[in-house]
């Protein structure tokens, strides 16, 4: 729990969004959520996350597209934050693609337990 305090969860599935928010809140992280790219961009205007969980499937757009935008456009001030991609399909090629586009890791939603999310953030702190 060194420097990574603020977490932003971008997930269109409300149940999972709430689940992740609850798990991370229980571990005393500052959690904000967004259910779409648009909401994400508006959230970023007033919230500066240290870690972002970004779903690859977002309504109307692809998480990868958003990832590229965040990493390349300095106006979002997200070029150096930790971004973890959430994927439902165990299509690891998609995940690999994400990592090549600036993701720091990926989570298979079906396999991870919410209580492990703090451990994921902790592992991100270990460089």
């Amino acid at each position: 729990m060194a420097g990574l305090k603020n977490v932003l969860v971008v997930e269109d599935d409300a149940m999972i969004r709430d689940l992740y928010k609850m798990a991370l809140a229980n571990a005393e992280y500052t959690v904000e959520v967004a259910d779409s790219a648009d909401e994400l961009y508006s959230k970023l205007a007033r919230f500066k996350p240290d870690v972002m969980f970004l779903d690859v499937m977002l309504p109307g757009t692809s998480g990868l597209q958003v990832l590229k935008e965040l990493r390349s456009n300095p106006k979002f001030d997200c070029t150096d934050i930790k971004i973890v991609v959430l994927t439902n399909l165990a299509q690891r090629t998609v995940a690999d693609n994400a990592m090549n586009n600036g993701a720091d890791g990926y989570i298979i939603k079906a396999d991870i337990l919410p209580k492990d999310l703090p451990k994921v953030i902790e592992s991100l702190e270990e460089e």
Binding site: A95, D104, I108, S123
Partner: peptide
């Protein structure tokens, strides 16, 4: 692979 799970199921971290 350039990633490791660190023993957490479902989590794959990019290796530096």
């Amino acid at each position: 692979a350039k990633k490791s799970s660190g023993g957490i199921r479902g989590w794959f971290k990019k290796r530096p």
